[in-house]
Write a protein that binds this DNA or RNA. Structure first.
Lengths: 124, 124
DNA sequence: CTAAAACCTCACGTCGACGTGAGGGGCAAG
DNA sequence: CTTGCCCCTCACGTCGACGTGAGGTTTTAG
């Protein structure tokens, strides 16, 4: 399929797909006239890329991990990086959870304040 | 305390503290000569700010929520924004968890491949 | 008193994942 | 043939949270 269709189906912009190619995250075939052509599998692959971006990975990191994540191709070195990223994400989840709980406690305490008219110390 | 000590104790750069003031996240007193002076409570407050930044909130959002989070001062409108951010964070945690699990399954499957010598379909 | 350390205010630089024209080619329908 | 849509390649713009000097003042230690 061509770039416009892939963009629509994967939910990203055409510009983003060209950018991914620039970063060596995708390597579509080219028609004689220079137009990009992608296989079906590209749709899922783009979604994976987006997911990794959303998890805070950089293009450089993703390009290193993609052969492993997409093709299941593994070396001990890649596995180590993969595990490192997993740990980073775990830490990030922990922090986000703490933040979420803090906001929630503020909401709870403040709602209480609104209802009772007197402030209620939050459990920090 | 002065800006250097606050920076050290809160674990941020001096530049960052000046930036926070520019964004109206902190409003230190000034000595006659123009130097900033912060109360003890600023240490914790900076940590909160950092935590909110880390959760993906912008300066604009944080400045809106700070009176609520720090002083417990609440209006229905602020509570709504607070709840909206909490929901955003919940969604983010869910996505990160999915990503984490995907990486973990790749690690598991790949380790298996390394050990057995034959690829093992990951549970996607 | 003096020198180092810490502070001040501009104000431009950075980095990454794209957005946004500018200017031009390719191809199916009427 | 030409209208219109999709595609191409530069290449500069953006945004946010600071980094990094430049050039000058204030505070502190000896």
């Amino acid at each position: 399929m061509r770039i416009g269709e892939l963009a629509a189906r994967a939910g990203v912009s055409v510009r983003a797909l060209r950018y991914y190619e620039e970063q060596h995250l995708l390597t579509p075939d080219r028609s004689p006239s220079g137009q990009r052509h992608y296989p079906e599998a590209a749709v899922e692959q783009v979604r994976v890329i987006q997911q990794l971006y959303a998890a805070g990975l950089s293009s450089r990191t993703i390009v290193a991990l993609l052969p492993c994540v997409v093709d299941g191709l593994a070396t001990p070195e890649l596995l180590a990086r993969l595990a490192a990223e997993r740990d980073r994400i775990d830490a990030q989840i922990a922090e986000l959870t703490a933040t979420r709980d803090r906001l929630q406690s503020v909401i709870g305490g403040a709602t209480d304040t609104l209802l009772t008219g007197r402030p209620c110390r939050t459990a920090n």
